[in-house]
Design a protein around this nucleic acid. Sequence first.
RNA 1: GCCCCCGUAGCUCAACCGGAUAGAGCAUCGGAUUUCUAAUCCGAGGGUUGCAGGUUCGACUCCUGCCGGGGGUACCA
Length: 633
Amino acid sequence: MSDFAREHLAEVMAGLAGIDRAEALKSLTVPREPSHGDYAFPCFRLGKNAPAVSADLAARFKPTPLLARAESKGPFLNFFLEPTAFAREVLTRAFQAGDAYGSSSAGAGKTVVLDYSAPNIAKPFSIGHLRSTVIGGALYRLFQSQGYRVVGINHLGDWGTQFGSMMYAWGRWGDEAELAEHGVAALKDLYVLEQRLEKAKDAAEWAAQVPGWLEDGVALPRIADLYRRTLAELKAGEEPEAQARAWFRRLETGDPEARALWDKFRAISLSEFDRVYRRLGIHFDEPTPADLVPGGTTKLNLYLGESFYNDKMEAVVQEARARNLAVESQGALIIDLEKWKMPPVLLLKSDGGTTYHTRDLASATYRAMTFGVADGGGMLLYVVGADQRDHFRQLFKALELLGLPWAKDCRHLDFGLVRMKTEEGASAKMSTRRGRGVLLADVLDRGVEFTRRILEERNLPQERKDAIAQAVGVGAVVFNDFKARRGKDVDFEWSRVLDYDPETKSFKGETGPYLQYMHTRLTSILRKYDKAVVADVDFARLSEPEEAALVKLVHAFPGVLRMATEECEPSIVAGYVLDVAGRFSSYYHDRDRHKVISEDAGLSAARVLLCAGLRQVLASGLRVLGVTPLEEM
RNA sequence: GCCCCCGUAGCUCAACCGGAUAGAGCAUCGGAUUUCUAAUCCGAGGGUUGCAGGUUCGACUCCUGCCGGGGGUACCA
């Protein structure tokens, strides 16, 4: 299924002008000016005298059931759809397909391995990870809609020297009661305390920062006491960085105490992540039991995080050595990429430890083998921030040099950085190490809280209000990430994420709530229509130009999903649903001219069917993006 | 220094892979509500698409240079 009118026209055009059908399809455009027609074909490439060619083609054009006429206007050949037949085709298809409308089987037999979210356990689940999570979730559903088999992988940052920092901090400041009460927020505080301690030039500088932390919403209530105590210990010559490294070495060498701490931290973080994923409707695919970490007994190992590859890295290093790719340099083992003007891939550090390069080489290989990508049957996609562009260029080049043919099927789907507005008004990259960063759960909670305030005045049962508040608050935050193309950087500002007007108590503009609201309007019309919606209506009754425009939007949906999938760009869907909602809203408000349900039964039936089509594409589009379509709000 | 990305209305972004008169939201100003639920709608103002060249029938889109912003630049990930 597809935007069939366009393909039909390409067929006609190919026959008319004697050109390739694909070429015709590529050249077809939609005139900006509606009176120029529904489609336009620029004739410049068909001859020196484009206006003459256009006129000739127009004269030879024979109408089809779907295409009423062709008009030459200068060098352009403009086509006009037969509106009744077009509306019948579009609305019948949408009605009959239901939730399947817009899906296709273009990707049948192909597998997409999608790496997304990947929060770091030692760090908070911040709004930076939100982007990867919601973009990844949308891409997951997009590829699914096009018939691909999708494997969602959460490459958790659950390994690395950062855990040494955590363990050291835990030994120094940790408190079971606080951990139980604050969970991951307490872990974050521990990590931040330690990182600032490493960064600070001396104890005095570190101490000077502490009062500010209290205002940053740090969870640990004992913090003021902590820093006084730590000051004394620092003066005794303690070196936090060295101790953190020592702790990680213990973890790597299988020290039981370190391992127990690692399990504990990981479990606390994962239960928090799971809560967030449930709220966002995010799903990852579970590996088979055989894929689990050796010795791993909890279900929390299902995410295939970095630790999963601990026993798979040696093979990569061996392979690089065997192919004479790996060379010694400054005491480390690297793959040199100087020829491609890139820094080297670091396989083994000078202390013999592995790096994230090593792990990513191992994970890519594992995925390609396990999920059938190595046979050329799919793709490995990484939804990771733009700051890691070089990393992935290096990674893919290294895979290529390792002689892996599927290296060409790897792609980094980068997205713009989330930056915080600083006090000075400038924006800066968020950094957990410096303690900046906004917790995702807080953002979601704040969205839900705003919504709850609006709903107070509604006459709805409390339990409905709770569910709506969740869906609207979360929808506002989620949709915000799709307003711009994923490559754009975003400055994090509360007022932009939640464009909430306290005076009118409403969300404004191009927002998730706006879209959800329009969906409730459509459903309430369909609810109010007491007869069953049928496809057998008089389509000629949809004669208003606004109605023709709406039919075109319903028609466009399959193409929108296809293009969004091809370009891995969910914002295309976002722009589309905004278009649908906006046009419908205008239509809906012009009650004098086109009230949907009226005395005129035939007219009502036709308009109701149109609304059913609009509701269908709006609901499907929202679901793809991870925004819940609502029936009332 | 080198590599990569981005410059479109005051702000945040679109523009159907090079097509006709560059469009939305926010903000500002002015209107609309005995309703198919106002978390809405209608209207107005607002542009030398960073600058300068080039490619061609045609450039926001492609190429070169410059200016400005951001990111990266082997033992964090």
